[in-house]
Write a protein that binds this DNA or RNA. Sequence first.
DNA 1: GCGAACGTTCAGAAATTTCTGAAGACAGGA
DNA 2: TCCTGTCTTCAGAAATTTCTGAACGTTCGC
Lengths: 156, 156
Amino acid sequence: MTGETERRDAAEQLALALVGAGMQRMGARTLAAFMFTEKDSLTAGDLAEELGVSAGSVSGAVRMVAQMGLIERIYVAGSRREHFRMLDNAWTTLYSRQHSVVDDVLRAVEKGVEAVGPGRAHDRLEYMRDFYTFLINEAPVLVERFERQRRGEPRS
Amino acid sequence: MTGETERRDAAEQLALALVGAGMQRMGARTLAAFMFTEKDSLTAGDLAEELGVSAGSVSGAVRMVAQMGLIERIYVAGSRREHFRMLDNAWTTLYSRQHSVVDDVLRAVEKGVEAVGPGRAHDRLEYMRDFYTFLINEAPVLVERFERQRRGEPRS
DNA sequence: GCGAACGTTCAGAAATTTCTGAAGACAGGA
DNA sequence: TCCTGTCTTCAGAAATTTCTGAACGTTCGC
């Protein structure tokens, strides 16, 4: 249907959008490569070639993305190289992870609430705290709802 | 209750957390300053002094934060300076804005779906597209629910 | 029109992030 | 044990982001 060039362009564009969303460049490109491959798994060498970067860069990027829980190492018999595969729930995982960032903000705000006496600032901080708390609680519910809906299950 | 130092420390900590969430440093510090002030409004000069940075930096940061819709210019009679105030709905606004970033990702993914023929990649892209579409749709609902709940209104 | 008070812009400095490539570590086979 | 293929680490290079400060605009009062 489409040429190799179009595929790569689309992958690069996705990577760019992910960078815009706050991801490291190399990690984003790695994830996009997994997104667009037809192969079962990719090795560090595959990635280096596909992305046109050094082995060192790939090593770092893969480590980061793996630790984010988006890809996993798999062991392929008869191959000495390490193979990686993208997890099915990578995107929902990524969404949840972004909420761990929200958690950091929330902790900072809670400290603020304690550090400030009554007044406008205190009120503002409480409002913010409440909203972020709400988000933290609702995010997993949202993801769960998506998954249920996708599996075609009836609403709980 | 607390000293000036504690207040500033807490503000800096919030700024740091916001940077972790992907905000520009200066914008985050500006927002934190608004969060922690007891004043009605702040001028560029106030911010420069509070944050210990140049007028140029403040100008850029204020522009960015204002354009994000988190603060607004207000006109104070008898003052030639421009005053700024944080909007009450700043945090829900910020949350919604983050979803405009999600929108960029979604567009890139949709392009990918078109650019790739049937196969694993196509399936993965579709799954991702569906999840991000779901998020885009649900985010405003979530915010609305928070606001209703906060106003103490009964569940719709 | 002129000066004072503010705000903005922008070129370059400073700081930070990102990438590379070479050296090293490690595992397996001979 | 030594060699080979693969992965990791890390110091420094390159690119990018961020901040400053000086020059320039604008507005207002006189």
